[in-house]
Nucleic acid binder design. Structure first.
Ligand SMILES: [Mn+2]
Ligand SMILES: [Mn+2]
Ligand SMILES: [Mn+2]
Ligand SMILES: [Mn+2]
Lengths: 219, 219
DNA sequence: ATCTAAGTTTAGACGCATCTAAATTTCCTG
DNA sequence: CAGGAAATTTAGATGCGTCTAAACTTAGAT
């Protein structure tokens, strides 16, 4: 029994669901990986037997230390690759995710190191996600989404990298990690959030506001 | 039924056995891919059903046009990647083969194009193997090995890329594709071939001479 | 507290890719 | 050209990763 690409994807996905604060239930994993819940249950049993997670039937799973280690390794590959593809190969930021999804399983430790060295041991990928270090402590800070943040000046910390269309739109209005924007008004009942990006004002729906993570900024 | 990584490896391997002029028999494929002959037979049947090769029981196989197309696509990926890894990432030439063996299945057409563009549409990989063009005619020239070549001045055209130790040794004595050397003497009965590389003379055994391909050079 | 809907697991199946052991075919050698 | 060795195929099995349909458990609503 070995750590296949599929096993890596399960562990990575479980890690990122848990990190978002949600309980890690069968259907959530199934949705993310686009497989049936039955497939997830069967894989969970294997991962549990391999010692990568603990499993309480009907209740969900939790990664063990060794499961977390593998998850972080794959996530490091993924985010280093996204940055490399964007930076060194000029792949547009809305396309790096899908490429990295495959390549993350294909690079050796040597290649990982070469890429990290060329990039100068970077700390964040093009979408603002932190890159786990090769070794040592790692802690992901949780930011609020635009949907939940209070009005006022904020810095864009991170954008969800899974929807290319959203990324293209965000790029078009000049909104990237690092950009400072102002939340001017939040209409009630799921209405748009009004933000000022540079000199322009935009009304952003939940489709967008749940995918942009920000932090308050003092002015 | 889809073109898996394994299917790609079989087609690539069959192509390269056929190109070397040998008949493509079950055991040869099995040896190359390090699987059992029984596995090869079973895969051959599938590839035949998929229309990628023609198969005469007990006699061997021959790629169809569509099989050849896939083989060349994978070989293009492999050789572009070897060159890219060596050139742009500084991976030593004795290690690029194993990396490329995995990555060849993981890059998209977009990424292939980006790599080719950055390298300036190269025609040969670091071991002297020609890179099949994206489209259009492609013909691999067959060169003699040092073992079979006549004494006299020759140019190194290609070295086998599969044995890292051999590659390291060849690099150490300064022998790469493009190097001009002189075959001074060939001892009979599988004895060493004496070659002059630069100012040094080397006695090369069959372990080496079967892995270096040369062409006669006029002086 | 009971019922029911949602979530989860089990049962049984399938295709891929591989193996070993046994049967078959080819082909070389004496 | 007969017999045996080598090559090849067949038979039967296994693990992975997935599915659908059916059974079961949990938890929320009345
Ligand atoms: Mn993946
Ligand atoms: Mn990312
Ligand atoms: Mn391969
Ligand atoms: Mn090569």
């Amino acid at each position: 029994m070995q750590v296949t690409d599929t096993v890596q994807d399960y562990l990575k996905t479980i890690y990122s669901i848990a990190r978002a604060g949600d309980g890690v239930h069968t259907t959530v994993i199934a949705d993310r990986l686009k497989v049936s819940p039955a497939s997830v249950t069967s894989m969970i049993k294997r991962l549990s037997a391999l010692g990568y997670l603990t499993y309480t039937r009907y209740q969900g799973v939790e990664l063990t230390d060794s499961g977390t280690e593998i998850a972080l390794e794959v996530i490091r590959h993924h985010r280093l690759l996204e940055l490399y593809l964007h930076h060194s190969l000029g792949i547009p930021w809305d396309r790096v995710h899908d490429e990295a999804e495959v390549l993350e399983h294909a690079i050796s430790e040597d290649l990982e190191d070469a890429i990290a060295r060329i990039l100068g041991d970077p700390t964040h990928d093009p979408h603002g996600d932190p890159i786990p270090p090769k070794s040592g402590v790692y802690l992901e800070v949780l930011h609020d989404t635009l949907e939940k943040a209070e009005p006022g000046p904020v810095r864009v910390e991170r954008v969800s990298d899974r929807d290319p269309e959203v990324l293209r739109h965000l790029a078009k209005i000049g909104l990237q990690p690092g950009t400072e924007i102002v939340i001017e008004r939040k209409d009630p009942y799921g209405g748009p959030v009004w933000v000022k990006v540079g000199k322009r004002r935009h009304a952003m729906g939940t489709e967008l506001t749940t995918k942009v993570y920000v932090s308050k900024v003092e002015r």
